[in-house]
Amino acid sequence: MALLKVINLRQHFKISRSFTVKAVNGVTFEINAGETYGLVGESGSGKTTIGRSIIRLYNPTEGKVFFDGKKISGNLDAATNKMLRQNMQMIFQDPMSSLNPRKKVGDIIAEGLDIHKLYKNLKERQEIIAEILKKVGLSPAHAERYPQQFSGGQRQRVGIARALVMNPKLIIADECISALDVSIQAQVVNLMKDIQDETKCAYLFIAHDLSMVKYISDRIGVLHKGYLVETGTTQEIFSNPAHPYTQSLLSAVPQPNPRVEKNRTLLTYNAENVNYESCTMQQLSDTHFVLT
């Protein structure tokens, strides 16, 4: 059974009486336990909004979200809320601004533990922190430091440790590597993969860097203007893209190969006359769907 089910999610933001931003329009997808689902699209396509709606930072305009078989959109009772807060965590884009500069790293990581009282005494709390720091490649002594004493890559490790300490089933990673250097990106992505092998958590990996998404994801969803235009396994999306938007997106990914790169032509996709609202999802294979 799917771990996360998003059904017909709509997220609209009313800006003024006459103007509403329709950020997400009827998006449906599933994430299975232990897999990585990549969401890609240009800025403004609604990928971040979807992540935030799932974790209840926004209240969906329409549609339902199920987690582990329980409905988690709309009003929740205390028990479901508690379950959700423990099992779903988020890693944010910018490790410079997502860590509280006035708290020690150890306290940042343990905040979730403190709230849910997941330890018996202070010694156990310290042990949990030390263990999680080791897991993400930092040393237990780092718990006494403040975020500004770390480099960007180390800070993102703290962000990952904070998400992991709750032992979640799903981690939403919103552009979690785009602020880092290339060599550090590879370190963080490897770390995320190792952790997945060990804890069997699932990732919702939101990014615009297609080569990284291809590398980490099992399945991919392509968003455009708030609509999910194509979804399928990584293999299907990359070797057999069906939607013209996906094709244009793939043609624009720069490849580290000068002779190939200089001869490539960019496919352009003009979506001005396309009305996605009247399109329906067509099934191409068991896992491959495209909006036409």
Binding site: S183, A186, Q187, N190, S211, K214, V253, N257
Partner: peptide
């Protein structure tokens, strides 16, 4: 070498991405 290997090209299927150790 490290920079080139750290960036996956669209054909990379290795289980792990090479990363330059340290900072």
């Amino acid at each position: 070498w490290g920079l080139l290997s750290a960036m996956p090209d669209l054909e990379t299927d290795d289980a792990r991405l090479y990363s330059i150790p340290g900072s």
